[in-house]
Write a protein that binds this DNA or RNA. Structure first.
Lengths: 143, 143
DNA sequence: TTGACAAATGCAACCTTGTTGCAATACAAT
DNA sequence: ATTGTATTGCAACAAGGTTGCATTTGTCAA
């Protein structure tokens, strides 16, 4: 999150075209998601990243900005199974997550031939619209 | 949770053998898990069930009992993706869960040929020890 | 039966994650 | 530079869960 990542600019321009403002915090947050696209981040972590880069942001603002960017389809909310929401840049490839039980970091993983919703059985009249698949274990540092 | 379910007795006897006490609340909670083995239950729901059957239990007690029964391997904690923990009787068949996005009820489902952990890719040095797979959508009443 | 010890309980206070109302601030179009 | 409104900060709140500590209650042994 050092400097403005160029890849974030089209996204920012699109937001501006829709009539939203490009505030310092919004630029930094969008930039953060673009500069590290591989690790889902929580609200608290994001707030700390902002602070580390010299910008103080109220937690309410961070929560609202994450909600806003989700609503705009820039990021998506994921739930890794510990009790806190995380967000990552929205992208097209279907993937899942691994949570380290010791340090609580989250990584993205792919599952070959993932066609889970077609393989359900025992469901009476439940209309399934999506799924989350979380693996857990120990990361390289913690194992 | 009407009356003491006989199927719960071996479990209770085993706990007693290990030196734990068979208190009223413990009997009722174990009995509740045995009398409805199909729906994962949250701490608050369990507390309400106890109240409905005439026993007031402090929420701390309920939380501690759930923790205790988990540690003893009687029940397992599941995380259906809404922000609250649920518990169900530990059993051997591998299965997963479906969460209704409107009423937040949870059901159990089976997935045919579930061999997810063998199909992971993109993981560098992560030791995977388990997974949770949650489907979400709308239940029969809410759809 | 009765003591006595430790397990279990209740209470109040606290923690974390996240949300809401409202007044103050700051983009950006003019 | 002015102005309208999107955005922000603050304080207070809310749900789910945890902790310390004093009290109660199973259980076992005398």
């Amino acid at each position: 999150m050092k400097q403005q990542n160029l890849a974030a600019l089209p996204t920012l321009a699109a937001l501006k075209d829709k009539g939203f403002r490009l505030t310092k915090i919004r630029r930094l947050i969008v930039g953060a998601f673009f500069s590290d696209t591989t690790v889902p981040v929580s609200a608290a972590e994001l707030q700390l990243q902002l602070l580390a880069s010299g910008t103080k942001a109220n937690k309410t603002t961070v929560y609202r900005e994450l909600e806003f960017l989700s609503a705009q389809g820039v990021i998506v909310e994921i739930n890794a199974g510990d009790g806190r929401k995380r967000y990552e840049l929205k992208r097209y490839g279907h993937h899942h997550h691994v949570l380290c039980l010791r340090c609580n970091t989250v990584e993205c993983v792919a599952v070959e031939n993932c066609a889970l919703e077609e393989q359900l059985s025992g469901l009476k009249d439940f209309k399934v619209t999506g799924h989350t698949l979380n693996f857990f274990g120990l990361c390289a540092e913690c194992r």
